[in-house]
Design a protein around this nucleic acid. Structure first.
Lengths: 216, 216
DNA sequence: TAAGTTACTAACTGGTCAGTCATTAAAACG
DNA sequence: CGTTTTAATGACTGACCAGTTAGTAACTTA
């Protein structure tokens, strides 16, 4: 009677489970939202039963918290390392923004901003954590790049704090789009074209007028 | 036994109910998300019982649809009227973007983009409607303003399609912020300062180099 | 003011889902 | 190989909530 093809032998893989569960949870939370996602569905996507999920996470809330923390923390260090890698402010700024798009915006992690924004008011403590550990730190990084550019006369004098939000908004907005309207509505314009136009606008908006006599 | 102060006399106000219910629903949907909002809470906020809600809307889904449609449609016409009011492309662009902020972004309606983005994949048909009737139409309006500017040599040559997303993103992003992290986390920078920096950046990025000999 | 109409209510129901627990079977060990 | 340990299961439960309905009270009309 038993059909091993239908119900494959249960596997014991204690190490890999949390990873697999948070990955499944991330994609479903981003797709449906926290409240509308059933734990049974998360477990099924991770290839386990709901009971197993409770071996690794205390509650649905705890799983949410883990999804946010695990997804974001590793991505932050990469960005902060860029400050020392690049000297030229313009190249640094491009590296930060493009790097964000390539490492986060265009990957599964790009759903986290949408998820976090949707659920911020249902999880105020996690929202505060995210705001401090992700947004503030990311903004600080950007601000240093902008400040360096202003310092050296490469960028015009602008309010560094406000400009950071304005700079990152089109990228985050685009990432959110991919996880919301993207799958429903007709295909958006080409990403490469979008990024090109974006840089074209903000860099033209930021760059100081060429010093007189500068060939380019 | 009855205490009229605790349970005020029931009122019969057929005309006003739908309005009041969609307004209550909008603010709760934006705050908690669709799935996490209870119809009892919406009814309570509107000062009626849940049964009354079902006199005016067939289902929770129907209420959601009404919230989106009622909130957005009126706001669109105002924007489209601007095309004829302004001739100067720069003034037109400012009027559109600032007008959006004042009529939508900074009001209760500013929660709709957050709500719609959060729920797009749970309501694909409404997402398509919103995309076509709101986003497409709004983008078309912006595009005309940009095209007019390029035509007359006031703006540089840029890809009109892509630039529209880039232009609107900081405003929508900011509106979403107000309805997500805003209430949880420390106050953001001043809105006026933000808008000023935003215009400073994008207009500098858009404007064509002053024709030689032009004093300003 | 009595009868009729309808906006509104509150208690109820059935389905859904987060969280639990007794049982099963895969590994580990002697 | 027999025993112990523990990862994993799936059936169960209690709370919650969308949607229903029988009944109530506010207006209308004669």
């Amino acid at each position: 009677m038993s059909d091993p093809a239908r119900s494959p032998a249960r596997q014991r893989r204690k190490e890999a489970r949390p990873q697999e569960l948070t990955a499944a949870a991330l994609s479903l939370f981003v797709e449906k939202g926290f409240a509308a996602t059933r734990l049974d569905d998360i477990a099924e996507r991770a290839g386990v039963s709901k009971g197993t999920l409770y071996l690794y996470f205390d509650s649905k809330d705890a799983l949410f918290k883990a999804v946010i923390q695990e997804g974001i923390v590793p991505a932050l260090h990469a960005g902060e390392a860029l400050l020392d890698e690049y000297d030229d402010p313009l190249a640094l700024l491009r590296a930060i923004l493009l790097g964000w798009w390539e490492r986060i915006g265009s990957t599964e992690l790009g759903g986290i901003p949408k998820l976090m924004m949707s659920e911020a008011r249902n999880f105020p403590d996690i929202a505060v954590y995210y705001q401090q550990e992700v947004i503030q730190r990311g903004t600080a990084l950007l601000r240093k790049a902008v400040a360096r550019g202003i310092e050296r006369g490469v960028f015009r004098e602008v309010d560094p704090e406000a400009i950071c939000s304005v700079l990152i908004a089109p990228l985050v907005y685009r990432a959110m789009w991919l996880h919301s309207f993207g799958p429903c509505c007709g295909q958006e314009t080409d990403v490469a074209q979008y990024l090109h136009t974006y840089f074209d606008l903000v860099l033209n908006g930021l760059l100081a007028p060429a010093p007189s006599g500068d060939a380019r």
